[in-house]
Simulated scan of single mutants.
Amino acid sequence: MKVSLQSEITLYPLSIRKDKKHYIVEEPISGDFFELPEIGVDAIKRLEQGEELVSIEHALKSSYPDEEVDIVDFVKQLLELGLVQEVDGMLVKKEQSKSTSRSGGFLWIPQSLGRLFFNRAMNKIYMLLLIANIIILILNPELFPHYKDIFLFDSMVLNILMYLSISLVLILIHEFGHILAIRSHDLPAKLSIGNRLIFIVFETDLTQAWKLDPKKRNTLYLAGISFEQVILFISFGIMLLFPDASIIGILGIIVLDIFIKFIYQCCFYMKTDVYYVVENITGCYNLMEDGRIYLNSLFKNRRKNGGNYKEIFQNEWNVIRLYSVFYIVGVVLTLILAVMYFVPQLYYTYTTIYLNLLGADDRAAFWDAIAFSVMTIFMLFLLVFVARKQKHEN
């Protein structure tokens, strides 16, 4: 749709709230959220008041002499974002939003239940449990998870089914923490399935969290980890008080799974819960993208814009450099997890399967190996399906 300085623009009703550095703009009908600087918000308010584009451009150039102002280009960006309702009296076709609507999103969970688990007192308890779990692990190194903790049975099929079942339950508890946290603010959430690296994961859409202040958003992002710390503390307690209990093997798998996922949360080259907390605290909502640009610039002889990235990132320069360090640390942590857990587990598993396939005398072990091989092929097909589905949606 053509836009000029003489165009008359009508926007959808917008909700604007000041954030740490810029402003969060919500289009309430679709539930979409956008971050805009002050000059953009000023332009929107003038558009809502019915000012002409020529008048708005002159006013912005006067109020923001250091900014490059092109009101026509700005309106085109608003069109792309789906914030423009009419141009010269003509209705703009709006694509259906994928955001969570108020008609769904676990609204059957009462707000009071969410507040029971997430309030000021409980948030402090979750933090104390995290500290307590770290101290317990330091004082009792024998509780440190080992890669063989998942091998409770001689049957590899039973081992993988046990591990997947426990991991699935823990994932659902983690995501239910997010859901309860956002319901404590009477906001909706949506649960979906996806994948990160080679893992199939459930993901809670916390888009509606942008309605909240940054400090409150952190509670939502850390809710899953908070629930895991409760489970971990209980597991450590039972393992220390009842070392000969019959469920010690299962508790070992629980500890291993939560430990790996906690380390995984610190891998900032992916958008994990902890990453969103860091992004939220700093107010740099393109931290990963800007961090990658900075890291790429370090390995290029010819940098864009003459290599003057400090000027491009402006006030976010120091944050982006620090994030880049943690980005690299996250990659190293992933490699450490692979060396300590994933590679030894895969080697032990498939060495055992190979020997069982050759051992014709033990028919039970042979058929167990066949069944495990079929399960492996099925999981690979499922992973490819989910990856393609995500690629198609994006």
Rank of each mutant, 00 (worst) to 15 (best):
F151C: 06
D88M: 07
R115F: 00
R102N: 07
E142C: 04
A121K: 13
I134N: 05
N119Y: 01
V157W: 06
I131N: 03
M156F: 15
L116K: 02
A132Y: 06
G114R: 02
I135K: 04
Q96H: 09
I138N: 07
L128G: 09
A132R: 05
I109V: 02
E95S: 12
L116F: 01
I150H: 05
S112A: 02
L152E: 06
I134F: 04
I131E: 01
P145D: 10
Q96T: 11
N140K: 01
E86R: 12
M127A: 15
F117H: 05
F151Y: 09
M156D: 15
V157I: 10
L158D: 13
E86N: 12
R115G: 00
K98S: 12
L113A: 02
S155A: 06
Q111M: 01
M122K: 01
R102T: 08
T100R: 06
L128Q: 14
I109E: 01
I131G: 04
S97G: 12
S155L: 02
L91A: 12
I125M: 02
L107W: 00
A121G: 12
Q111R: 06
K148G: 15
Q111N: 01
S97F: 03
S112I: 01
Q111I: 02
I131V: 12
E95Q: 15
N119V: 03
I134A: 09
G105S: 00
L91V: 08
L161W: 05
D154E: 15
S155N: 07
Y163V: 11
V157E: 07
L128A: 14
L113K: 03
E86I: 05
V157T: 07
L137Q: 05
N159E: 11
N159Q: 05
L152W: 04
G114S: 00
E142W: 08
L91W: 09
G104S: 09
D149C: 07
